[in-house]
Design a protein around this nucleic acid. Structure first.
Lengths: 212, 212
DNA sequence: CCGTGTGAAATTCTTCACAGCT
DNA sequence: AGCTGTGAAGAATTTCACACGG
């Protein structure tokens, strides 16, 4: 049941929601697509077009009610509930992710972690139990986990992704530097700071083509 | 001098380069756009079209020489040199970034860090000196820094970005959860795990619209 | 008047399909 | 026979521009 709304549109909605949160916190009650667009570096027409996929949320001549639109977006994105997260791979990065409080603030509850190393499995980090990898399938069969965060080494990542998918996980946030394969119906997003830097050096090189 | 090569194309080149590195490490000497595409979930036509912006690197009937193409891509992207990086904001996240060794392995050398807290400034982390924020402009005026990594709280991020831009930094990797503004000619990339998760919950909700 | 919602136009990006080289 | 490089076709995305409601 892949809806016919473009994925680029879906991916912009969280940005709109975040800007609206900020506006709401600053006391604004109404906002125009113009103003919202300036904050986000998006054209007003794009915002209006994106929102029009889901309904008519604005008032002509007036704009959008900040609180109402925020509620609508949160409902559309499924942010009006909490989601259970597991983290796989508790090296330095995985450790930092467990200690990060930004997920829970947005309704993403890390309920369990997994690691291959016996030295780490069995410990608790931030109150989250770290289990050995071979308990992954059993755990996922009995407990609800909506999103998996993968922070294992590149060599292990595709195997971990396959195991998560086989266990029914439908959303994966991958920090490992590989292009992981997932079947239709499973969402995956890649976080890759090195690749992002490498996309910027192209432009740096253009600006000042000298040696470093 | 913004070249007329689409940014989406530039952003795919690092992925091609990485896949080629893996292929080279596994001993492959030749690869077709078909095979490369399967590894990356990209169509062969897309790979050939992307590469055609830069030259003719393949041999008809044969494919691409892995080492040659990798060298060409590294040269195009400016990965055949090292780049100096500074990290601003040494909280938990900034700390993890300083301890991460994936940047230096790819030629990104973190040469300095900055933090507003007197408790952190003055210390060394992984051999990298952490300086107080008010030394930022002075440092950047005298030392070459190509890329800045921003890991400060959301409220401080735009100010930090502005200061970096004013000091001549032309590439910024932003971990703060805001849509930062930069002028024309400055590259910025956003790393935002929460936004990525929020883009996936839309599809999770579609699959199983129940409460959590 | 102001600003939304939206068909239509314009632009950007991807895929096709095949000539041509090895 | 196999695979690249590439114009042309097609699809996706963004922007325009204006009718309409507040």
């Amino acid at each position: 049941m892949t809806s016919d709304i473009p994925e680029v549109v879906i991916n912009r909605l969280p940005l709109y929601a975040r800007a609206l949160s900020t506006l709401a916190a600053s006391g604004a009650t109404v906002v125009s697509s113009q103003t919202l667009g300036e904050q986000l570096d998006v054209t007003p027409a794009q915002i209006r077009k994106d929102l029009s996929y889901f309904g008519r949320f604005g008032k002509q001549g007036r704009g959008y009610n900040v609180g109402d639109l925020l509620d609508r977006l949160r409902s559309i994105l499924g942010l009006d509930r909490t989601w259970n997260v597991c983290v796989v791979g508790i090296g330095r990065l995985g450790h930092a992710i467990l200690e990060y409080d930004g997920f829970v603030q947005q309704g993403f509850h890390t309920v369990v972690a997994f690691d291959a190393s016996p030295a780490v499995a069995g410990t608790d980090i931030q109150g989250i139990r770290v289990r050995p990898m071979d308990e992954l399938e059993g755990y996922l069969a009995s407990e609800e986990v909506d999103i998996a965060v993968v922070a294992v080494p590149a060599e292990a990542a595709q195997v971990v992704v396959d195991r998560l998918v086989a266990s029914g996980v439908k959303a994966i946030l991958n920090y490992a530097p590989i292009s992981a394969h997932v079947p239709e119906g499973v969402s995956i997003r890649q976080i890759d700071p090195v690749v992002m830097m490498q996309g910027m050096t192209y432009y740096l090189k253009e600006l000042a083509p000298d040696a470093g």
